[in-house]
Amino acid sequence: MQNLLLLLAKYGSWILFVILEVFCFYLITNYNSKQEKIFIHSANLISGQFNNRINTLSDYFKLKDQNDSLRVENAKLLQQILNIPELALSEEKVKKDTFLNKFELIPANICSKTLHLRNNHFTICKGEKDGIKPGMGVLSKNGIVGIVKDVSENYAHILNLLNSQIRISAIIKDKEYHGNLVWKGKNHKILHLEAIPKHANIEVGDEIITSGYSTIFPKGFDVGKVMNFSIPSGSNNYEIEVEINNDLYTVHTLYVVSNRYADEQLQLEKENSDE
């Protein structure tokens, strides 16, 4: 017993070091699992509230810019409303009631963001209370922003495009080739579009839009433009660099996309994949 105590006194710091280090790596490697969610969830409660206070202060300095961009946005929306009756006249056969209301937008403000790490996040000041659920898509007025990962009562945690864990299904406009958008680090304006086959005919400047194949984003929303492409030797796919429309550094108002039929679609897909 005495020996044990002596051992502890002598090597206690080593043991402590190893234990804490193992614990840290446990936290890190469980990056996608329940532990991480619990951690981030409780962190949201504390740091979210904290960040909220700071942001109310810094918001004052940005009021003018925000007003300007809100005005532009309002004008755009008004324009769309004005266009609806015309639309109704031209395609009367389509059942518009169901599809016009399929996607609902929930506006929200960013209360904290990281942009210069390898995995970047936004935290927004709306949560479960306002109808936000994990898995919803997030847009800004210029393009897509990310996907909701986790929600607490008043806050939601968003993986933004600059995150190595995110995959967004997208197509090249008018050509219907379908691939995944990923971020490979480094440049904040460039994403990579993967899995476009070699025989596709693409050009610099082609527009990339969301595919609408998942329940997350509506079809046909602008993402960006093809900036550069090449075929690596020995590969069957293009390597395409896409310049995104959005500047994630300057976005402040986000819209969370709530798909009214998401549950229904997922349920059906799940039932059929079980068989």
């Binding site: 206690g12 840290c24 790596f25 890190i28 504390i46 995995n119």
Partner: peptide, 30 residues
Amino acid sequence: RSLVIIIGFLSGICIDMFYDSPGIHASAAV
């Protein structure tokens, strides 16, 4: 020495909360 390690861990985990990176700063600080 043990106290230094514990303080390192605590400071790291505090920073991690705000960086949304569980364990990364803490492991380096330890």
